[in-house]
């Protein structure tokens, strides 16, 4: 493992699950600029891990550290400045322009009434610029396409200025062009801003290209953890998803 800076987020012997522990002894450490992908069959527990790291589910054991402090020691506002999410759950935007959606990312930084300072406005504009949505900023959030919407959501997450991004299947439902655009922007900003990213994905070919580490989750357990070159090979993928030899050869062999 090459160390490119301080550890930003790490887990030690983390156990996650809803009512009882489902996955035990999860350990990882991410530095600035690194992307960790979670792959595995539906219902294997990827979302459960992400939800626990993001603080929606109580952990059943172990610890999650952001920098040197455990996640439980941070106040909600401190946590909001450190960690930002993009969920599979649709964001409700009744009558909001794309810019207004992005502006919500400034929430942890604004005062009592949530009014934006000039610095906040700059951060919002920069985030919109970064996801290449400047031309759509004034459009209603409900009027744009799924791919564009996901980029606006990315901008919202970025302008929260977090050190950690947690994404649950951000590229599902996007066409291939928008998947690529989304991941390209994500990769770029991760490096530039030295952010640590934990993201679950179904697109194995794309996951291979953006990952620094990959976690394989299967049947409520960690099936394998490692660098992408160790994971994305015939043997591991076939066993992870239980794909019969002949079908793998027919559809997935290069």
């Amino acid at each position: 493992m090459s160390i490119t800076g301080d550890t930003i987020i790490s887990a030690e012997n983390l156990s996650v699950g809803y009512d009882k522990p489902l996955i035990r002894d999860i350990c990882f450490a991410l530095h600035g600029g690194e992307i960790m992908t979670l792959i595995g069959p539906n219902g294997s527990g990827k979302s459960t891990i992400l939800k626990t790291i993001a603080g929606y589910l109580k952990k059943h054991g172990g610890d999650i550290y952001i920098g040197d402090s455990t996640i439980d020691d941070l106040s909600p506002n401190e946590k909001a400045r450190q960690l930002s999410v993009l969920l599979t759950e649709r964001l409700r935007a009744d009558i909001m322009t794309c810019r207004e959606v992005v502006e919500m990312g400034r929430y942890p930084y604004t005062g009592r009434f949530g009014l934006l300072s000039p610095a906040d406005n700059t951060a919002v504009d920069d985030a919109i610029e970064l996801v290449q949505m400047s031309d759509f900023a004034h459009k209603d959030f409900s009027e744009i396409s799924d791919g564009q919407r996901q980029r606006v959501m990315l901008a919202r997450a970025i302008c929260q200025e977090p050190r950690i991004l947690i994404f649950d299947e951000p590229t599902s439902y996007l066409d291939i062009y928008h998947k690529i655009i989304f991941l390209e922007i994500l990769k770029k900003l991760t490096r530039e801003r030295s952010i640590a990213v934990v993201v679950s994905m179904h697109e194995l070919d794309l996951a291979e290209k953006i990952s620094d580490y990959t976690v394989c989750v299967k049947d409520g357990g960690i099936f394998k953890f490692g660098k992408p070159q160790e994971i994305f090979c015939r043997d591991v993928i076939r066993r992870l998803f239980d794909i019969p030899e002949d079908l793998y050869a027919k559809y997935l062999s290069p």
Binding site: A54, G55, Y56, S75, P76, N77, K79, A80, R81, L83, S84, V85, L87, E89, R90, L91, R92, A93, D94, V101, M104, G105, Y107, P108, T110, R112, F113, G114, Q160
Partner: peptide, 20 residues
């Protein structure tokens, strides 16, 4: 009005923004 604005996005997003 500030937390209500965040709450409108959905509980999970609001919680991520630091709303109790």
């Amino acid at each position: 009005s500030k937390p209500i604005g965040a709450y409108q996005l959905g509980e999970n997003y609001a919680q991520n923004l630091g709303v109790n």
